[in-house]
Structure formats: C-alpha cells, structure tokens
Design a protein around this nucleic acid. Structure first.
Lengths: 172, 172
DNA sequence: CCTATTGCAGATAAAAAATATCCACGATAA
DNA sequence: TTATCGTGGATATTTTTTATCTGCAATAGG
C-alpha cells in the first residue's frame, strides 16, 4: 500500500493557500518553489484539486490558486480522494471464481467476505481522514510548530499572494 | 492508494489452507490452479507469508504449505503487512523544508502535523484489519456463502492436501 | 490593441514498481 | 535413484508514477 507523493504536496499547498488573504491568489509556480517541487508536475495535482472544487483557479497575470471554500470545510479526505482517486485500495478480482472450483455464477451473487472486510477497514481509514480539517492542520502548525518556520512561511505567502479584482469565492 | 493483487491472493490462499486437515500440506501449484493464478508469481507471495511465519512450508514430494498457527491467531493485518510491507502508506518527504522557506534544522525537530494525521488514520486502518481473524473469514464463508461454492472448495482441498509424516506445526 | 503572465489540456518521455517467467539448487518421500 | 516440491536469484514484461514540454485560452496592465 502506497500513497503517491502528490498527496503530501497537495496537502501542503492547500495548507499554504489557507493563509492567503481574502480572495487573493497564489501562482502554482510560487507553490512549487515553496516546496522545491517540479512546477509542471505540481500543476497536475493542483488541477486535480481544482477539478474536485477544493481549489479555485484564476487565469491571467495576477492569477493563481486559492481555496474554493473555507479551510474549516476542507478535510484531509477531500484532498486525498481528489489526488489519489476515489476507488478503494483493495479491488476484489473475484479470484475465487477464476479457478477450476468455479461453479455456476448464481453461487457468487453475495459479495466476497474478504472484500467486505477490506472495505470496512478502508472506511475506518477514510473516516479518520474526514475528521481532520485543513484548518486543524494550519492551527496545529501555528501553535505547535517552530515560530521561525511559521513566520518564514507567512512571509513567503505574503510575498507571492496577489489581490484580485474579481469576486471572492462564494461561501456555499 | 492501491493494494497489490498479491494481497487478495494471499488472503484467499490462507483461507484455503485453513481448511486442510491437521498437519497436512497443500502444494503451491495447487493453490495457484485453485484461483487461476500464475504459479511462479504466487510462490513469491506464499514465500512472503512463510517468511512472516504465517505459513509453514514442507519441501519434497508430498510437501507444500500449511498454516503456521491456528486460523484464530492470524489476522488480515498479519497477511496484508507480510505481503505489502510494514511501511506506512504515507511517507513524509519533509517537503516543508525543501524550498526557500527553509530555516535552520532546529526549527524542524517536531514531526510534521500532516504526517501525524496521516499516520493516525493509517493506525485506524490497521486496527480494523487486526480485528478480523482468518477464522472469521472462513466461518463467514461457510455460513454466508453459497453452499455449492463452499462444497466445491472443500472438495478441491480434499483432493490436493497431503498428509505428513513430520510433526504438526507447533501451537506457540 | 498589445504584451506578458498565468492556468489548462494533451502528447510524450523517463524512471520506478508491479507482475510474471525461468532456472539451478537443496530437501525428501517413495 | 528418481520425481516432486520449496527457495532464491536473475531476468523480462507490463503498468504506474513521475516529469517535461508545447500550444492554447484567459486576462491584467499598459
């Protein structure tokens, strides 16, 4: 079981965007530089976040990304599912009916018990992720993290964020 | 997030081995045929289970695999960790200190809050898997599954299991 | 209107991992 | 002695992940 690196990048970027002012945006290139990531590849992930309506994007100069809704209503699960996809980690291939033991298809209408157990565990995983809000991550970072690192991060955001003419994101 | 196909194979094989009599064994080739899997590749996974002391192997003709301990003391977590490895799905690359925001290393002694949240969720996942015993899987299969499929599976085991001269596995 | 900057989509390439096969070896039951 | 089995290593094949590049549309600012 393995999560792609994109997940870490996506969460850090979202947490960073949580501290931009109002309706300002931050360019993807700045986010990439902030974490030493490949810009072209990070854009792929930011795009997935945009498609999932976790981020909003503004084109043009002075454009960039911002959160599509307040950090209180974005969970780690939202981000993980957006980047990794919504399919469960365990995919039942129904190998129980792939050998010579196979019987009539009517014998396999009930879902495989193994699959059920694996999916139940994954629900527990997702439930735990759903309990963590992006605002929790940011608050923890501000409270528990080193003040110097926090200050440096804020300064970076301050330096790269860009105010917008257009309307701020609707608080649905 | 994705689990390899080996996990499904390993669980099914372990469940099958749970119904061989006493100290008898079942050859890997028979298990592979049972589920229509590539024999040479399945052996890799059976090997991982053996290394993890979930299975025992007996060489020579009339040899094969059997459970290393009763199915009541084998959990899905044991099997998943044996096949997928014990490392967590989320690996923190500490990208927070890979950009220009980076400060002195002393600012990063505390573990990353994102990492902590992801690992906590994974503990929930593993805890859920640890609650399911192989004996539960087998019992569920016998009770809930189609009787025809169960009978066919038992017949297959009956046909391929081989009694042993050597001592039965120690019940540690 | 013009230009520079930005996000977006798609094609493509490079690297890594999962999947699969094969062979030589030691063990052992018959 | 022989045939069957698991083990370990080497290797090939396929898929996934990671990464880059190019052309395009949108738009702020002059």
């Amino acid at each position: 079981m393995k999560l792609g690196e994109g997940v870490e990048a996506a969460i850090h970027c979202a947490a960073t965007l949580a501290s931009v002012d109002g309706n300002s945006t931050m360019p993807g290139a700045a986010l990439a530089k902030c974490f030493g990531l490949s810009p072209s590849y990070l854009l792929k992930h930011l795009n997935q976040l945009t498609a999932a309506r976790i981020l909003e994007s503004v084109p043009g100069p002075a454009g960039g990304y911002r959160l599509a809704r307040p950090a209180e209503r974005i969970t780690l699960l939202d981000i993980v599912l957006a980047v990794e996809g919504r399919e469960p980690a365990f995919r039942c291939g129904e190998i129980r009916q792939r050998g010579p033991v196979k019987i009539d298809a009517s014998a396999y209408v009930k879902p495989c018990g193994i699959n059920a157990a694996m999916l139940k565990a994954e629900r527990a995983y997702r439930a735990a992720l759903a309990e963590v809000k992006l605002s929790d991550i940011v608050a923890d970072y501000a409270a528990e993290g080193d003040p110097r690192a926090f200050a440096a991060s804020c300064a970076f955001v301050e330096r790269h964020q860009r105010p917008q003419k257009s309307a701020p994101p609707k608080q649905i």
